[in-house]
Design a protein around this nucleic acid. Structure first.
Length: 437
RNA sequence: GUGGGUGUAGCUCAGUUGGUUAGAGCGCCAGGUUGUGGUCCUGGAGGCCGUGGGUUCAAAUCCCACCACUCACCCCA
């Protein structure tokens, strides 16, 4: 069997079984995705976050304004198209959509602070590589309406709690503050002033950034540029006292929670909406894509999106694919795929009919029941039961129909017993219960 | 967008200095067992050897182009 079609570049299928792509990256099976998603939802619930689901399709303008015109995402990575007179974009991240939804539906009117989480696919038209896809999956939170340092600290705490619940350790948390947009703007000018004389020595991208977004030059990896930056003005020197106090408070709260971090004055992040606290969570030894999650405060985003009142906000976004890479690297135990409680094998037309009906009854009673649809030999059906790892197999043939009792076989020991049709549900239920306990 | 790597069965991979009908292991299907799985034995299905062109009596093998995938740079989750 074959097809001339294949999945779109930079996307991947999640199958019942794990498999490796051509680069050797393991694609986790659907059961593991479910496990991670369930864990995320569970930790979110414990931290009192509520789920929000927004459309995958958003107006292009929302992303352009929210994420920032100067960002790579908007400049070259959007899957955008036009239909009629509307500009659509496949969302490249979920913070701007959540804030849009928050404003549109006046969620502030629910009262108090809105603690929201999300989980779903995002799209960026980048060149794919290990840990980076064109359709990828993010989960994250947004705390809207709180400017307190506790909101920053809780954001980080939730992220760490999820990683811990998944069994991940040895993570590096890097922390920085960008200050207010006003002070940040002053710094940007100072940095530009410092770098401009060296303009000729900068790489092409850095030269472009010098005009559009000099802050981003800070995380350059070009050695010469790093050398130049050594004597450049430091962002922290421009950060105001209030911001510093806020930052100190965040650090104090993290220390209280026993969360270790490392300060990184160069940590800038690529999205324009960040202010004040920013952070990034890395797993060492993941290659180029070591960032599992990133986030920070974005107190001005709501206003950029048209809100007449400011909405202080903080959040993080984590990449599911990166998480799986980290889980692989750490060789964390994974859940196994669910197996049937019982496999029912049938012999002959009459038995098949009976089995088809009884299977339905057992399933209604809550059992996970498998059976063969193709009327194959008993041997083939037993083989199938074995492959599916069913702990019990029930055999129904002419003898059983005549006796009114099923043959129930315990696969591991091979022991068989007769169970009257009338007590099938009860007995099987009990056996399965005992098996699981 | 710029570099590097790799393309042979569902999967992992052999395939000699170019030489008949392209192989192995695992997996799949069936039989050995007319009603019993896992081990074993036997058989079977499954390949445009990534695509196109070139060299040659002869190409999976040599040359060129293209495509796909992948890793990295950039940037990000």
């Amino acid at each position: 069997m074959s097809t001339s079609f294949q999945n779109i570049r930079g996307t991947f299928d999640i199958l019942p079984d794990a498999y490796s792509d051509d680069g050797g990256t393991r694609i986790a099976p659907s059961a593991e995705w479910r496990h991670v998603e369930t864990t995320v939802r569970d930790v979110m619930r414990r931290h009192n976050f509520e789920e929000i689901r927004t459309p995958i399709l958003e107006p292009t303008e929302l992303v352009a304004r929210g994420v920032g015109e100067s960002t790579d995402i908007v400049q070259k990575e959007m899957f955008a198209f036009e239909r009629g007179d509307t500009q659509y974009v496949l969302r490249p991240e979920i913070t701007a959509p959540v804030v849009r939804s928050f404003l549109q539906h006046h969620l502030a009117q629910r009262g108090g602070v809105q603690k929201l989480f999300y989980l779903g696919p995002c799209f960026r038209a980048e060149k794919p590589q290990k840990g980076r896809y064109r359709q990828f999956h993010q989960f994250g939170i947004e705390i809207l309406g709180a400017d307190e340092a506790r909101a920053d600290a809780e954001t980080i705490a939730v992220l760490m709690a999820i990683c811990e619940a998944l069994g991940l350790s040895d993570l590096d948390l890097r922390l920085n503050t960008l200050g207010t947009p006003e002070r940040r703007a002053e710094y940007v000018e100072a940095l530009r002033g410092y770098l401009e004389p060296y303009s000729d020595e900068l790489s092409e991208t850095s030269q472009r950034r010098l005009e559009r977004n000099p802050l981003r030059i800070l995380d350059t990896k070009v050695e010469h540029e790093q050398k130049l930056l050594r004597d450049a003005p430091q962002l922290i020197e421009f950060v105001g006292e209030e911001s510093l106090a806020h930052y100190d408070e965040v650090k104090g709260l993290l220390a209280d929670l026993g969360i270790e971090y490392e300060e990184d004055p160069r940590l800038v992040r690529g999205l324009d909406y960040y202010t004040e606290t920013t952070f990034e969570l890395e797993h060492p030894g993941l290659g180029a894509q070591s960032a599992l999650a990133g986030g920070g405060r974005y107190d001005r985003l709501a206003e950029v999106l048209g809100s007449d009142a400011p909405v202080p906000a903080v959040g993080f976004a984590a990449g599911m694919e990166r998480l799986f890479l980290a889980l692989d690297a750490a060789a964390v135990d994974r859940p196994e795929s669910p197996t049937p409680d019982v496999f029912i094998a049938a012999l002959g037309d009459e038995a098949e009919q009976w089995v088809f009906r009884t299977t339905q009854e057992l399933r209604t009673a809550g059992l996970h029941v498998a059976h063969d649809l193709k009327g194959r030999s008993l041997k083939a059906q037993m083989k199938e039961a074995n492959r599916q790892n069913a702990p019990y197999t029930m055999i129904i043939g002419g003898n059983e129909l005549e006796a009114g009792a099923a043959t129930v076989k315990e696969m591991e020991s091979g022991a068989q017993e007769e169970v009257g049709f009338s007590e099938l549900t009860e007995v099987l239920g009990r056996l399965v219960e005992a098996q699981k306990g």
